[in-house]
Computed example of a mutant assay.
Amino acid sequence: MTAPLIFDGHNDLLLRIHSGAVSAGPDGFLGSGGNQIDMEKARAGGFGGGFFAIYVPNENTSLDETEMDKPAYDLPLPEMVDWPAASRVALSQASILIKLEREGALAICRSTDEIRAAMAEGKLAAVMHMEGAEAIDPDFHMLDVLYAAGLRSLGPVWSRETIFGHGVPFRYPSTGDTGPGLTADGIRLIRKCNDLRVLVDLSHLNEAGFWDVAKHSDAPLVATHSNAHAISPHSRNLTDRQLHAIRDSDGMVGLNFAVAFLREDGQMDENTPIDQMIKQLDYLMEQLGEDRVGLGSDFDGATVPAKISTIAGLPHLRSAMQARGYDAELITKLCHGNWMRVLDKTWGHTSAA
């Protein structure tokens, strides 16, 4: 099953290209030489586009994911990245997305009308997203610049601390109740995003930060790539109380494909059956309703179930949905319809420059 097209809540392609791990050219993303995402795999998997994340890594520091093979773990987080370094990397990754648009491979979309048009034309529909706001200054000058370039979604933190708030560690077992919430600048950032109609992403925020966004935001609550804590008790996952707050705001959650956040044992084991993804989808729909659940793969940034492996493997997920008894209308909602619904509510239909 390569239809309906999938619009996805998160990928890290821009980081892979920026770091040199994947070429942006015909031998890489524009052909078949990418990692989990490239144009050939997109066509094979029925991948229509999604949120393309700008993410600033720490230089010479990375998480040791081998620790996530243990029965319990708590990975130390890298230090905060300062603004000058973060802004250089963020602008570089935004530039990569703009260049890919010039190549005709994708369209940077600022409205759901533009997303639908791009997918109808066979172009990848790309939402410029920022995962962690290290590149945003307290005066929001960089936010205004990136907004003009197409930024329409922003997560105040990746798991490490920023001037705006605190994220969750990679800790299992754990809740997300791991520290203080948004700073005063963080609350100002949420209000600025509301003013611009930029989606605020709750994924990676700790519980205190989540509740601060719920208190101060007037937009639907959205976690672009998160799962249910009741099934996988990982700090990155959302409790029932958080899921109910998202439901009550008429927001949504995108299912994260990263196996450690799918599994009851929190293990980073690619030999995770697709049925575990269906189990998460069932639970999320039970808590949120079938109109508030979608997909947020984390492709090019996570270990996913081996049977899927890359976006070319997405037909296996659609087939598993069908085998579970999901009808065509529900599969369409999960694949892209629910993202269009919540983005309509957050952005409105018309393009804004």
Rank of each mutant, 00 (worst) to 15 (best):
H18T: 03
A208P: 15
R324G: 12
G25A: 09
G28W: 10
A133E: 04
L262K: 03
R160F: 12
A312L: 10
G34D: 10
E264M: 11
A126N: 05
E286V: 13
H349V: 15
E264Q: 12
I278T: 05
N35W: 14
C109S: 04
A312T: 09
E59V: 15
E131Y: 03
A120T: 13
L281W: 05
A245L: 07
D64N: 12
L77K: 01
S319Q: 15
L295C: 14
M252G: 05
G45N: 05
M252R: 08
R160C: 12
F170C: 11
P156N: 06
Y55K: 13
I163Q: 07
G34C: 11
A133N: 06
E67C: 14
G301E: 09
V213R: 02
D212F: 01
Y172Q: 10
R116Y: 14
R88V: 14
M1K: 09
R241P: 07
G34K: 06
A219S: 11
F7D: 02
M277Q: 08
P233N: 06
C109Y: 00
E114T: 06
I278E: 13
A125M: 08
K70M: 09
I108D: 00
S203Y: 05
M119D: 01
S217I: 05
P84I: 12
I54L: 08
S23E: 15
S159L: 06
F47N: 03
R102F: 14
I311C: 07
L262M: 08
P76D: 00
R324V: 05
H349M: 13
K123L: 12
L334A: 00
A90R: 06
D291L: 06
R292G: 05
K307I: 15
H225L: 12
T346R: 11
L199R: 03
A86G: 04
R318E: 04
K345H: 10
G49L: 12
D344T: 13
A245M: 07
D240P: 00
P138Y: 13
F51W: 02
T310N: 07
G28C: 11
M1I: 13
M340H: 15
I311T: 04
G209P: 01
P84F: 06
M80C: 09
Q280Y: 06
A214Q: 06
I108F: 00
S309Q: 11
D269S: 06
M252L: 04
A302G: 07
F170A: 12
P76W: 01
V157N: 02
I37E: 02
G45R: 10
I278W: 08
D185P: 15
G325C: 03
G165Y: 09
I274A: 08
A126F: 05
H216S: 08
A353D: 14
M268A: 11
G294W: 07
D201W: 08
E329G: 14
A120P: 00
L13H: 03
T350G: 13
F261T: 11
L5E: 10
S92V: 14
L154F: 04
V168G: 01
Q322I: 14
L151W: 03
N271A: 12
G209R: 07
V145F: 01
Q322N: 11
D195P: 01
R160Q: 11
A219I: 12
V213A: 06
A260L: 13
I115P: 04
H229C: 07
R324S: 15
D74A: 14
E329D: 10
V157Q: 01
A352Q: 13
I308T: 09
D139S: 10
T66H: 08
